[in-house]
Amino acid sequence: MVRVPADGSREAPIEQLVEVLHRLPGGQILVTSIENVLNWARARSIWPLTFGLACCAMEMMQAMGTRFDLDRFGVIPRATPRQADLIIVAGRCTIKMAPVVRRLWEQMPEPKYVISMGSCATCGGPFYYDNYSILKGIDTVIPVDVYVPGCPPRPEALIEGVLKLQEKIQRERRLTRRLQEAGA
């Protein structure tokens, strides 16, 4: 049942799974259930990149610190983009820094998410007018999933942002979409 292409290349296991399941009677339902389980696991172990730009990074640290403890939500900071699922853009991003943020985002493996933390990352914030060096919003460089407003947002606000991202991940239909693309 599992198709091995003639050129010897192997498809990813998850794609093989889709292949197998959609040929079973009622496979569609099975895929949806598996998808829910996958999303549930994914949403509850979001590993962000240890990456701070400016003031908001302090509140991010407080959120990971003693009183707020983001670890409760499975948010464990990783120091390398290769192990990260989430990049929290915490603080103002300069034009000089923008290519670096873009490259960090590109280095992260799929599926990847972006939280824009604070006014500066969202739209330039207080550095919008009379300013020649700050980017007017990080969404001009990388796609943003959740915006957290505030200057800086309180740790509770960041936690709310993470919860919203979890909801968003839970609603994702990556497998179903792939199944539909395969013509099932």
């Binding site: 300069t94 550095f127 007018y129 009379d130 060096s133 700050i134």
Partner: peptide, 13 residues
């Protein structure tokens, strides 16, 4: 310079 925010210039305005 990765966080240069042109504060001195902004203060003039």
């Amino acid at each position: 310079g990765y966080l240069h925010s042109s504060v001195e210039k902004m203060m003039e305005h």
